[in-house]
Amino acid sequence: MNNKKKDLTRREFIKKSLGWAGLAGVLYLPVPQLLKLSDNTITGSGQTSKNPAAESQPGEKVRDWCMVIDLRKCDGCVSFDSPPQCTQTCINAHFTPGGQQWIEVYEAELPGGGSYFMPSPCNQCENAPCVNVCPVGATYHDEDGLVLIDHSRCIGCRMCMAACPYHRRFFNWGTPKLPPEAALAEYSPLYPVPAVKGTVIKCMFCGHLLRDGKLPFCVRGCPTKTLYMGDLNEDIATNGREVVVLSRFLRENNAYQLKAELGTQPRTWYIPGHGQESGRKSDDKRKLMKPVWGWGGYDDHPGIWPWGESNNSASGNSTAGHPTGEAHSK
């Protein structure tokens, strides 16, 4: 009897203490954490240590970057007989690994026949599907509205690439081949150079330049002044040659957002056109030229089969069905 009673009290004790501990855990632990985490995703303040954006003082003016792409001016640089200069400048300035076009120019069809060129950077969506799915908060919005990636946190699950409806995210599949000067670059999420193996990378509107009051590389590189960098807060945009009132510019030129029906709220607007202001005819048959990576693709690897060291990275890529880059020359 005595024995049984002792057993019962121990049981009761364990039961009760576990119950109280569990209740406390349920009430205390996840709730503040959830709140904190959801805070992170909106403001990006969780990345305090690594994100320079978080160093801004509360009183500081917060930007709301956006881009306007005036398709009436874009001729895909075919009249210059060169690859699209926005892409090429971006590649040269960020040492992007082979095949990655952070801003990519697509050739799309016009309703009545003919085609137009469409430069496509990351849309920096306000309701970004990639930010919503990231399991570790490696991709986040900074205070200026940019969607950035913290490459020291990204685990490489590529969920964001599946979520992005614009194909605007790239993966560093291997150790990228880079020119020696890339090693001098000082990495930050605003300037993700050099690229880190096994992480996702994309356009970040050259946030490092915007902070210094400079225009992004693609805007500066564009010879036809197609690209406008703007600030939604100040309602202003510029392509480096002219300054426009953003809202009026968008309104008067029937600007549209890519796949606006998806509700991603892109921060990139397009003004319909086919390069007419640069003197391009819509039935121009000249094709886009492929941009050049001066440093090749990825480091050599043993090819797609365990035998045969002969496959270098380029042929390895094409046999494995690497579509980026090659397709446009066809």
């Binding site: 996840p30 959830l34 985490l37 959801s38 992170n40 995703t41 919503n132 799915v133 990231c134 399991p135 570790v136 908060g137 490696a138 946190r153 990204c154 685990i155 490489g156 699950c157 590529r158 969920m159 993966f171 560093n172 599949w173 193996k197 096994g198 992480t199 996702v200």
Partner: peptide, 26 residues
Amino acid sequence: VDVGRPDRLLFLFAYGRFQSPLVWDV
């Protein structure tokens, strides 16, 4: 084996966001 950075798998617990379907999966 699918993740690009297996060395950072524990980040799923250290920095896991409950809003991500992948974390629900884990």
